[in-house]
Design a protein around this nucleic acid. Structure first.
Length: 651
DNA sequence: GAGCACTGC
C-alpha cells in the first residue's frame, strides 16, 4: 500500500465484510509461510506489488501471533507522512479500535500513540531519529521497512544501521518489503554466514495485465509525440482515462494548452478530452481536480510529473503514456550547488509507470521510445545517496558515534568527495571539531533539533543576537514551506495582497511578518483565504514552533518574551551564521555573482528582485538549464561577512 | 524576459 489518497480510496470497501476482505488480499495465502520465515530467520525479504496487502496485513499477523506479548512493538516505516497516517487509520479500523490505541502513527511534528500501542507506523526519518536515543531499538521486536526499492538516503542509512543492530540483538526481526523484483542484492547485503540468516518470499500480486507498445523509431520531440499519442488513443481506443508522464511543469503546461486548443477540431462522435495538470507546484485544491469524475462523453487526460509514479495514485487510469525521462537533482560537492537535469528513467521506473494503468482493470502503456532503448535502460535508478548533499547523513553518522564514516556498512558507499564536502560544511558550522567529533554543546544540540542543520545553527546562535523569539518563528515558517498562495486564476489580486506583507529586508522577514500576523490573528482561516495565504503551511508552521520550543527550554536559550525594538537586520545577521556560504554581490550590470564568482539569478517571485541591493544572502540555489536561481533572498551588510571570510594578509 | 523532479527529521 503506498496510496497517497488512501483514505478516500478505501472508503467504499468498508461497507462490505471486513474479515472476508482481508482474506481476499493476495498476502493472505502466504500468512503461515511468512510467519514461519520471520520466526526462523532474522531477516525476511518480501517482494510484493502495490495492493498485495503487505503494508496493512503483515503487522496485524505479527500482532495476532504474539510478537508484542512481552510489551515490545512492531514498527513499520514508510517514505511518506501521509501514508504512515492513513495506513494507521485503516489498520485501526480493521482492528475496530481508535487510532492511537493498539495501532498508531508518528511522523515529524505529529504523533498519535499511547502506552498500549503495539503497531506503530512511522516515516523512515522518524525511526532514524529514534536511534539517537534507543541505539539498539530495544522497544521493538520487529521492524518492517516498506518500499525499500525507493532507495532514499534514509532507507540506505536504515539498512546499514539495522545490519549492525541485528548482530547485537539476536531476538530482533527485520522485514524488508520491496516492489522491485531484484531483491537478491538486498539478500546478499544482509546475509552473513553463522551470523545473519535471511529468507526471500515473493507474493504474487493481483495486477491486471497491461499491454506495452513502443515507438518504431526514436522521437525527436516527445512532447509532440505525447500529444499525437493522446489524440490517437481518443480516436481509436475504447473509453478510459489517460495518464501521461512528462518531466516538468513547462512541458505539462504546454500539453494542457495544446489539448485545450485541439478541442475545437474534435469530431462530435469522439469523447471530449479534459486536460489536467499534476505536479507539486499546484495547490492541494488544484491537485485534487485529477480525482473528479466526469460523464462518459468526457475523457480525462492527466499530464503529470513523477508525482504520479509513487506519491499520488489515481484510479480509473486505462492508458499510460511514458516519455521515458525524469528530472533528477544532482549535487555538486565542489560548488555545493544542485543541478536539476533530465535523465532517462530506469526499467523499474518504466514498470512502475506502466503499473499505473493496471490497478483496477487491464490497460495499455505507450512508451514513447523504441524497445531497443528500453532494453538499454538501467535496471534500477541510482540511489539518492550517490548524488545528493550528504550533510544530514554524515551528521547523523557522526551523532551515532562513527569516527570514520567508512566504518559504516553502506549498502552502496557514497563518493568520497561528497563525504568530505559534508564534513567540511559541518566543521565550518561548528558542529564538529578538529578531530571530527561532535562539538559540545553546539553539535549535540544541532543534531537533536528536528531542523535543517543551517537553521539549527542560526537558532542556537540567536541568543547572542537577542533574537531567539524571532528566530524561532523564522525557522518554523521556513521549515513549513511557501506561505504565499497564488491561484493561477487570480494572480494579480494575490500579488497585490502579498505586497502588503513585504519588508525591505527581503523574503525571510516577509515570511516572518506573515507568520506573526497569522499567530496574532489566532490562526484565522478566513483571513488567510482573503489574503491569498497558505493556511495549511501556516498552521503547520505553528505546530513546528510548538515542537521546537521545548528543545530551546532544555538548552536554556528559551525566548522569554518578544523584544519589541529589536533591529530586524540582527535577525538576518544571525541567520547568516548558518548560511554564510550563500552570499551574492551586485555587479555593475545589475546581475549577481556568488562569492565564488558564479552568476546567479534572483527568482522572479522574490521581494528583492530588481532592487539593486549590493550584498544579499539566499537560502536555496538550484541550477536549471545552465542558469542558477536563488530563493529566500535577504539584504545583508558586507561587514557581517568579515568573521567568515578573513583577508589573507590580515594579522 | 522567463525561469525549479520528488520526498523528509
Amino acid at each position: 500500500m503506498e496510496d497517497e489518497f488512501a483514505i478516500q480510496s478505501f472508503k467504499p470497501a468498508l461497507s462490505t465484510n471486513l474479515t472476508l476482505q482481508k482474506k481476499l488480499l493476495p498476502i493472505f495465502k502466504y500468512r503461515e509461510q511468512l510467519l514461519y520465515a520471520i520466526e526462523t530467520f532474522q531477516v525476511t525479504l518480501i517482494h510484493g506489488h502495490t495492493g498485495c496487502g503487505k503494508t496493512t496485513q503483515l503487522p496485524q499477523y505479527l500482532y495476532e501471533t504474539g510478537w508484542t506479548k512481552d510489551g515490545k512493538i512492531i514498527g513499520c516505516t514508510q517514505p511518506r507522512r501521509l501514508v504512515a497516517r492513513s495506513v494507521a487509520a485503516r489498520v485501526s479500523e480493521e482492528l475496530t479500535t481508535e487510532v492511537g490505541k493498539t495501532c498508531g502513527y508518528k511522523i515529524q511534528f505529529e504523533h498519535n500513540i499511547s502506552d498500549e500501542t503495539r503497531i506503530e507506523y512511522m516515516t523512515d526519518g522518524t525511526l532514524l531519529k529514534e536511534i539517537l536515543t534507543d541505539p539498539l531499538l530495544e522497544r521493538y521486536s520487529v521492524i518492517i521497512i516498506d518500499e525499500v526499492h525507493e532507495r532514499t538516503i534514509n532507507i540506505d542509512l536504515l539498512l546499514g544501521i539495522l545490519k549492525r543492530i541485528l548482530i547485537k540483538r539476536r531476538d530482533l526481526r527485520v522485514i524488508l518489503a520491496s516492489a522491485s523484483a531484484n531483491i537478491q542484492k538486498l539478500n546478499d547485503f544482509f546475509y552473513e554466514k553463522d551470523k545473519i540468516e535471511t529468507k526471500s518470499i515473493s507474493i504474487e500480486g493481483k495486477l491486471f495485465p497491461v499491454d506495452v507498445m513502443y515507438l518504431e523509431n526514436p522521437t525527436e520531440n516527445y512532447v509532440n509525440t505525447a500529444i499525437e499519442t493522446v489524440l490517437n488513443i481518443n480516436s481509436s481506443y475504447p473509453s478510459g482515462d489517460i495518464l501521461v508522464f512528462l518531466t516538468d511543469r513547462r512541458e505539462i503546461e504546454e500539453c494542457v494548452k495544446r489539448i485545450e486548443s485541439s478541442a475545437v477540431t474534435t469530431p462530435d462522435d469522439l469523447p471530449m478530452l479534459v486536460p489536467l495538470p499534476l505536479h507539486s507546484g499546484l495547490t492541494l485544491d488544484e491537485q485534487l481536480r485529477v480525482f473528479e469524475i466526469y460523464e462518459n462523453r468526457f475523457r480525462k487526460v492527466i499530464f503529470s510529473t513523477n508525482i504520479a509514479e509513487a506519491s499520488v495514485t489515481i484510479d480509473g487510469i486505462v492508458y499510460v503514456v511514458d516519455c521515458g525521462f525524469c528530472k533528477q537533482r544532482i549535487f555538486n560537492p565542489y560548488s555545493r550547488v544542485s543541478k536539476l537535469i533530465r535523465i532517462p528513467i530506469s526499467k523499474s521506473n518504466a514498470v512502475q509507470r506502466m503499473g499505473r494503468a493496471g490497478r483496477t482493470n487491464s490497460g495499455k502503456c505507450f512508451r514513447l521510445f523504441p524497445k531497443t532503448i528500453y532494453d538499454s535502460l538501467k535496471d534500477e535508478s541510482d540511489a539518492e545517496i550517490s548524488h545528493s548533499d550528504l550533510l544530514p547523513a554524515v551528521f547523523f553518522l557522526k551523532a551515532i558515534g562513527l569516527r570514520n564514516i567508512y566504518q559504516f556498512p553502506f549498502y552502496i558507499p557514497p563518493p568520497t568527495v561528497h563525504i568530505i564536502a559534508a564534513l567540511e560544511d559541518l566543521y565550518f558550522l561548528g558542529a564538529i571539531d578538529d578531530y571530527s567529533n561532535l562539538t559540545d554543546p553546539t553539535g549535540l544540540q544541532m543534531v537533536e533539533l528536528p531542523l535543517d542543520a543551517r537553521l539549527s545553527k542560526a537558532l542556537l546562535s540567536s541568543a547572542s543576537y537577542d533574537c531567539t523569539y524571532a528566530m524561532l518563528n523564522i525557522v518554523s515558517v521556513m521549515m513549513a514551506g511557501d506561505v504565499f498562495y497564488r491561484p493561477s486564476s487570480n494572480q494579480y489580486e494575490a500579488t497585490a495582497c502579498h505586497a502588503t506583507f513585504t519588508t525591505e529586508e527581503g523574503d525571510i522577514l516577509t515570511g516572518l511578518n506573515v507568520f506573526e500576523s497569522f499567530l496574532n490573528r489566532r490562526t484565522d482561516m478566513k483571513w488567510c483565504k482573503a489574503n491569498f495565504l497558505n493556511y495549511n503551511t501556516l498552521s503547520h508552521a505553528s505546530e513546528i514552533r510548538k515542537h521546537i520550543l521545548p528543545y530551546l527550554q532544555r538548552f536554556h536559550i528559551s525566548p522569554e518574551k518578544r523584544i519589541r525594538d529589536i533591529d530586524p537586520s540582527k535577525m538576518i545577521e544571525c541567520l547568516l551564521q548558518g548560511f554564510f556560504r550563500n552570499v551574492a554581490h551586485l555587479q555593475d550590470d545589475g546581475s549577481y555573482r556568488t562569492i565564488l564568482g558564479s552568476p546567479v539569478l534572483v527568482d522572479h517571485k522574490s521581494t528583492l528582485i530588481n532592487k539593486g541591493i549590493p550584498w544579499i544572502m539566499f537560502t536555496s540555489m538550484v541550477e536549471y538549464e545552465g542558469r542558477a536561481f536563488i530563493n529566500g533572498v535577504s539584504k545583508i551588510e558586507s561587514k557581517w561577512l568579515e568573521k567568515f571570510y578573513h583577508r589573507k594578509n590580515k594579522k
